[in-house]
């Protein structure tokens, strides 16, 4: 099996923050989607971002990934300010993501979809590609080998030649995960990875996410499935109406009165 270089064992990274969000604001016209949100994600941990619909979770993801610029505030990834930078640039720094509404490339096979994941870790340009130079061929073989290894890791190698968008929903989620992991990211952003999965698939996903952390990859996830979040997260950030209302370990969040109030409604209501 091809050797894939994942960052480092988790213990070594645990102390320093890999991602720091500082006083982040974003408004759309008159609507304040995020207000002064700050938190840190330590290397080698799983951090969950929860909150009711419209709390600003997706906006925050889009700001981190570079799909949207913030109105103000800072996003520091690996000691570099990345706010307002292009998404492809941030991806090359070692950040990969999956999408809530799965975004695979139509017309490309499952293997090719995962090979795209290695784009940020390879270099062949137009000229070398058009002339099919030896180094382009070598790199292409390497991309293919590592991508196939990723499919094997996720137990979907038998689907390699199938068109990815024609696969079953759960399989498509697995392909997205393989594509993200193929980039050998340091930080993996998962946008509702359990949405649409049944309880067995969700349990498998929990194992997979824990396994990914053991490879040294830091994870930030948005998720509505509370049992999953409580089971796998090291820390949780709770957003409501664009503000951070709580942050802490799962046990503390479960007993936080304000969090209980927004999820269950207060006793007065």
């Amino acid at each position: 099996m091809a050797k894939i270089n994942f960052p480092a064992p988790p213990g070594r990274l645990r102390k320093m923050p890999l991602l720091s969000i500082k006083d982040l604001n974003r408004s759309f016209g008159g609507i304040q989607a995020l207000s002064d949100v700050s938190f840190k994600v330590s290397g080698g941990t799983i951090k969950a971002l929860i909150g009711p619909n419209g709390a600003g979770k997706t906006t925050l993801f889009n700001l981190i990934c570079g799909n949207l610029p913030p109105s103000s505030g800072r996003i520091i990834f690996k000691d570099q300010a990345i706010e307002g930078r292009a998404a492809h640039h941030i991806a090359r720094l070692g950040l990969a993501r999956t999408f809530q509404n799965i975004k695979l490339y139509p017309g490309l096979s499952t293997l090719e979809n995962v090979m795209l994941g290695r784009h940020s870790r390879s270099h062949t340009g137009f000229m070398a590609a058009m002339l099919n130079l030896p180094r382009a061929r070598r790199e292409e073989a390497d991309i293919k080998e590592k991508s196939y290894a990723m499919l094997q890791m996720l137990n979907i190698a038998d689907l390699a030649a199938k068109e990815a968008v024609s696969l079953a929903f759960g399989q498509q989620r697995a392909v997205e995960m393989a594509r993200a992991l193929a980039a050998e990211p340091e930080l993996l952003l998962l946008d509702e990875p359990a949405a649409g999965l049944n309880i067995y698939e969700t349990a498998e996903l929990a194992d997979l996410i824990t396994q990914v952390r053991e490879m040294g990859i830091t994870i930030l996830l948005v998720e509505h499935d509370m049992s999953l979040v409580m089971k796998i997260s090291d820390e949780i950030v709770v957003l409501n109406f664009g503000r951070k209302i709580a942050e802490g370990v799962p046990a503390a969040i479960q007993n936080n009165q304000e969090v209980i109030k927004i999820y269950l409604g207060s006793e007065d209501d």
Partner: peptide
């Protein structure tokens, strides 16, 4: 090739292509 695959990805899903570093 690698750039060709990226072009086909841009066609199908520009946002996901960008997220993959294209």
């Amino acid at each position: 090739s690698r750039p060709g695959r990226a072009l086909r990805a841009i066609h199908g899903s520009p946002e996901a292509a960008e997220a993959a570093g294209v």
